[in-house]
Design a protein around this nucleic acid. Sequence first.
DNA 1: AAAGAAAAATGAAACGTTACATGAAATTAT
DNA 2: ATAATTTCATGTAACGTTTCATTTTTCTTT
Lengths: 331, 331
Amino acid sequence: MKKENSVPTMKDVAKEAGVALGTVSKVVNGLPVGESYRIRVEEAIEKLNYQVNSYAQGLKANKTYTVALLIPNMQNPFFAMLAYHINLSLLKRKYRMLLCSTDFDAALEQEYVTMVQQNKVDGIIGLTYNPNLVIEENTPFVAIDRSISPQIPCVACDNFAGGQLAAEKLADLGCKKVAFLRIGSSLTNEPNKRKAGFENGCLSRGLSYEMKILDDGAPLEEFEKFLTEHIYDGRLSFDGIFCVTDNLAFSILKMLRRLHQNVPEDVQVIGFDGIRLFGDQDYICSTIVQPVPEIAEMCVELLLQENMTVKPPLVCLPVTYAYGRTTSETE
Amino acid sequence: MKKENSVPTMKDVAKEAGVALGTVSKVVNGLPVGESYRIRVEEAIEKLNYQVNSYAQGLKANKTYTVALLIPNMQNPFFAMLAYHINLSLLKRKYRMLLCSTDFDAALEQEYVTMVQQNKVDGIIGLTYNPNLVIEENTPFVAIDRSISPQIPCVACDNFAGGQLAAEKLADLGCKKVAFLRIGSSLTNEPNKRKAGFENGCLSRGLSYEMKILDDGAPLEEFEKFLTEHIYDGRLSFDGIFCVTDNLAFSILKMLRRLHQNVPEDVQVIGFDGIRLFGDQDYICSTIVQPVPEIAEMCVELLLQENMTVKPPLVCLPVTYAYGRTTSETE
DNA sequence: AAAGAAAAATGAAACGTTACATGAAATTAT
DNA sequence: ATAATTTCATGTAACGTTTCATTTTTCTTT
């Protein structure tokens, strides 16, 4: 005897409607079925409050309509923004998002990838700097900001152009001597190009520049030391600073306040990423804005596009500049 | 004939190891099995790179080790913080998190709940203000900040005490006349108590207070109008403001800047939630801090605890105060 | 050493779906 | 009116697990 409180299955619906199992399946999947049958089945579905079991579907079809998103930390507003837009893009296509926040923990990342493979997600979108992540051949994977292997497409903003743009903006704002600050050697591959782009921009605009690059895990105080060393008679010898991320810019702004340097009067600061608090308020600093909605859409498209013979190894999307109270207003 | 590139199954492992299907299952699930068998099976698993198909498991067991988290918008740092900690708590128990960002869209929320029920997630943790969300009886649900029904446990911080604490802090800081600002009638139920707590605190500390409460969707400019109306000779008649959320506080701070009121010299501002940028930097304003890790842990525990005969309808967790540059430093 | 008890491996059945080969009914053509 | 053709419902076999009744092996006991 059937348990009272058990969830109704297609079989129950078929019995209720006096119809074969396959007919119910067709109705559920919108396949052509005789009018009278369809109505009867729909009524039975309504009556029993039937809902398909997508695990059975997944078992059959080997398809789950679920995509895993691997990000270091969703408390970072940039990653949150990414997750938000990827969620939207997936939703448009009726896909669900499994969120995996890895906290830069390599073991955890690997565990997640495996977990996610076991779960037979349809694919993974991953922002990970972990160099020895093992990704199974058969797992569709799209990387953000990092070229993992030639077979795995990488989506990123045009980091080189972003670096250039930062230099040009600082030049436009009248800066003469600028600095580039970066932390994290782990900012490998794509975001790395921000430095090269910035150098290129400085050279072409005749800006003198200096760089301070810290290893991953180094204490941020090193930057404060660097800044202090460049203060003569209470004045910073730079009039412009480009920080590799808004996150870093935010920390640098605090240091400048401690060092009694006014932003943007004494020194202009530009970050990178385009972070806004709560997603809709002002930019937390002047910044090179990543086209996050487009990046998200591109990732999802590349991941789910099946009839694509050759996947592009690297997709670069254009950046823009946005004002955020850490540079002098221009227009 | 078996397809070359197909994913190996237990059957393949069994054949490879020269062992029965059930034996492989036991090894995979860590059930007692003869030593020699176990080794042979493990070798076969290794060789074929076998991974269990959790959709088949889910079909069998009606258990998925997946929990859905329903939040309005993960770009709100408070929700991001919640998601982060719930993810951690779930991970500890080997559960995955399906993240559903609903953007306050009622239809989307309902769609998600249904989607998620189809997918047979083991449960839902939901922060939703949607009053007519339909939740199936058989879906384990834990609500955050809102009492949905007596059967559904609600986890929240002690909002009343938080309101009181805000009033007390303002009194301690020497405020005489304070204001409470809130937007969103949709801040129903639990967060609502912040107002009552604040009133109570003001009364017991002899603070005179005023309230400005806007409906959901009202333009924030109404607050600016309110503030402007309380400026006499360029000075705001309040010396303390308690905002119902850090999000609102952030907007109010911008207005105060526009109105040339200095924070905290002219007026002290306290928010609610305990938001920090990037999860680890300074609080964006002085704030009543929600115990988010504890809230997360409690939600997960309540959701997954099976042998709990009676679930508590409401769990309140203690709040604390944190300094964040919008009140005068006290000690 | 043989029989009985305990332990452990076996393999079929079931979970809820989809797909496909089969067969029945309805339609068209002669 | 009958045969040929099309249309469409039917029901069984998979998908990859877990479970459990069964059989086989191993260990005790006398």
